[in-house]
């Protein structure tokens, strides 16, 4: 039995009547017949550009929004009929954090734990554990709104973890985060999957993230699932190569043999090298340029997965809005 089963989900936001002179906003069919299954222990992603309908879909899965029609079953519970059960089945990280903004990180996490039904002692113990796990100890006493965007996001992620749930629903969890914070998120997600069999459903518009952390991806466009497979499976639809872009500070360190080898295969434009490589070679190339003297000379790099993007385009999606970083 899938952890989360969605059938023919339809949700239309009604047209907004324009005020004197203002144009009328038309009705938006934000979920247009969505069907998907998330299996137990899976890290399942929803990928699509802004406005594709990802948040609308997860807000229906978390009982926040009532679908017009269709069915949602989470862990065997009918959430269309009993939306209030969602809070007792899953942990949710929304895109907003206004409820917690003025609290300290520690208090935000502890309070959320209490409200998820933990006792005082449990809540404190779990609070400390989660804060440690995510490397938030130094920020624990600071108010969320005094943190950087990425730090605040990480603190909100901590609130989604406290008070264990078998399913985590995360809406763009890593937005604005630096690589260290991102790694902390993925490690925490992975640990919950490996040690406790948790299932994770997450939203992203980041192609690289989708490529590297997801077991399966549903590609969403205009409220429809236009493809659903493993990242590898989707990639095979359009070939197996990935695109690596390297930007050097001034001159590439050609004295590093790996870099010299890459240079031979690269298309160069100014300080930018563009390479098309099989995924495993790209991975070792990234490893080579993110270490030692090569890293010192590196200004920026992106490992793009043109295949996912190309899948997306080939299936009729719009390109703008997908992030490749």
């Amino acid at each position: 039995m899938p952890v989360c089963a969605v059938r023919d989900l339809v949700k239309t936001y009604p047209a907004l009547r324009g005020r004197r002179g203002a144009a009328q906003a038309p009705a938006v069919r934000a979920s247009d017949g969505i069907t998907l299954d998330v299996r137990r222990g899976e890290i399942f992603g929803l990928l699509g550009p802004n406005g594709a309908g990802k948040s609308t879909l997860v807000r229906q899965l978390t009982g926040l929004l009532r679908p017009d029609s269709g069915s949602i079953s989470v862990l065997g519970h009918d959430l269309v009929r009993h939306p209030e059960r969602a809070a007792r089945l899953l942990g949710y990280l929304g895109q907003e954090s206004t409820a917690l903004d003025e609290l300290t990180v520690a208090l935000a996490v502890e309070t959320t734990g209490r409200l998820r039904g933990l006792g005082t002692r449990e809540a404190r113990a779990e609070r400390d554990a989660v804060i440690d796990e995510l490397g938030l100890a130094d920020l624990a006493g600071r108010a969320l709104k005094k943190l950087s965007g990425g730090q605040r996001r990480l603190a909100c992620f901590a609130t989604a973890l406290i008070g264990e749930r078998p399913l985590l629903v995360l809406d763009e969890p890593t937005t604005g985060m630096d690589p260290v914070a991102r790694r902390a998120v993925w490690a925490a997600v992975d640990r919950r999957r490996a040690e406790r069999g948790a299932t994770v459903l997450l939203v992203t518009h980041n192609v690289l993230e989708a490529e590297s952390v997801l077991d399966r991806v549903a590609v969403i466009d205009r409220g429809r699932v236009i493809a659903c497979d493993t990242p590898g499976g989707l990639k095979e639809m359009v070939g197996e190569e990935v695109r690596l872009e390297l930007v050097w500070r001034d001159r590439p360190p050609l004295d590093v043999p790996e870099v010299a080898a890459l240079g031979a295969a690269a298309r160069t434009s100014g300080r930018r090298w563009t390479l098309r490589l099989p995924a495993d070679e790209a991975r070792s190339a990234v490893a080579a340029v993110t270490a030692g003297p090569a890293f010192a000379a590196l200004d920026d790099f992106t490992l793009a997965t043109p295949s996912l993007e190309d899948v997306y385009l080939a299936l009729g999606g719009r390109a703008e809005g997908l992030v490749k970083a």
């Binding site: 089963a5 069915s71 065997g76 519970h77 009929r81």
Partner: peptide
């Protein structure tokens, strides 16, 4: 489709 609310539904965590 899935059969919601069948016998194998997971237990609900307690309310606060």
């Amino acid at each position: 489709g899935p059969r919601p609310d069948d016998g194998r539904a997971a237990p609900l965590a307690p309310r606060a």
